[in-house]
Design a protein around this nucleic acid. Sequence first.
DNA 1: GTCTATAAAGGGATAGAC
DNA 2: GTCTATCCCTTTATAGAC
Lengths: 203, 203
Amino acid sequence: MVKSKNTEEKILDSAREIFMMKGFEGARMQEIADHAGINKALLHYYFRSKEKLFASIFNKILSQIGPAMLTFINEEIPLEVKIWKFVDSYLELMKKFPRMPLFIINEISINPERIIGHLNFSDFLDLRKLEKILHDEHGKGRIIAVDVKHFIVNIIGLTVFPLAAKIIIQRNLQIQNDEWHQFIEERKKVIPETIMGWLKNMD
Amino acid sequence: MVKSKNTEEKILDSAREIFMMKGFEGARMQEIADHAGINKALLHYYFRSKEKLFASIFNKILSQIGPAMLTFINEEIPLEVKIWKFVDSYLELMKKFPRMPLFIINEISINPERIIGHLNFSDFLDLRKLEKILHDEHGKGRIIAVDVKHFIVNIIGLTVFPLAAKIIIQRNLQIQNDEWHQFIEERKKVIPETIMGWLKNMD
DNA sequence: GTCTATAAAGGGATAGAC
DNA sequence: GTCTATCCCTTTATAGAC
């Protein structure tokens, strides 16, 4: 139950919470209303339908992810620092909303039509610019030649996967709740090490 | 519509298809029945409830994943070959059921209670044995010292993430459907390279 | 075993009072 | 803006004929 906020904010906060926990299909308007401390009718008064309420929070969420990728590419800093900054800012953002990565991947995969138009990372991530950076670094003999697509998938996979699969990883690797935070902190070091080890593997 | 199979098999095949596509909450018994070419009542005749039908296919699916991990650890082969074998067998298995990884991660995360008991990778993956291998290799000066947990998360993340986030990756990296297969084939080489580059980064 | 018909419950949405 | 009461369609599940 959220306090000292106007009704619309309370609804949006509760909707985000419940939708992230249960997904679109599993979420119940009644549960969202209860969580916000109001009744169902008010939800419809403010957002007309479940679909529209969902769209509202989904847009909000996606707009928060872009900035985390901006620093990755645009600043004039060494490649290694770019990677470190991306991993750090992404993992920090996800501390607030740990269910966000899985939620986004799943909702888009189940219902891509609902999302069309919101899914453009090209605003934040200029593939060609990144490709040029990798190409130049290789030209200077600093790194091996790599495909920019695998470069991106590697970094994002190493960063996002443990968050998305948190429960499975915790159970199978026997990481208790109070150790999880530490594990994620370690990844801030491990991920850049992994990527740079790969890029500098010059045998 | 599935043909030339007994009714129970038709139901299980259809249920797997629909559940994987829509998730537990999004799936409809009617849709499963239509897909199997029968009517709703028969679903209940064979499996009593949606929950039980879901449990049946979920168990079946999880039991197919274990073996892909077995080769990874038990065979007496070099570490690099182990990694290669894991990635190869896992990606091959997922060609048949591309939605499996995301489906499993999501259903377990949304409803861990329903799954308890099926989630024990320790049958296939002996952490201590793997830890010993990494420790010995490090002792021989062949690799750097790494935490076995990050080792596993790295390998699985690099392998599973692109499958789970397929649609998002395809759209943002502009990979067409007919190029996706090629992209996954490339990863069979990229992932072992990434891991080994990390492990052998001896500066 | 398989079907049609229907019960029973769930859940999104609206009407109307305050 | 916020509430209660209620509508009504959807969906799971069962009854009963064949």
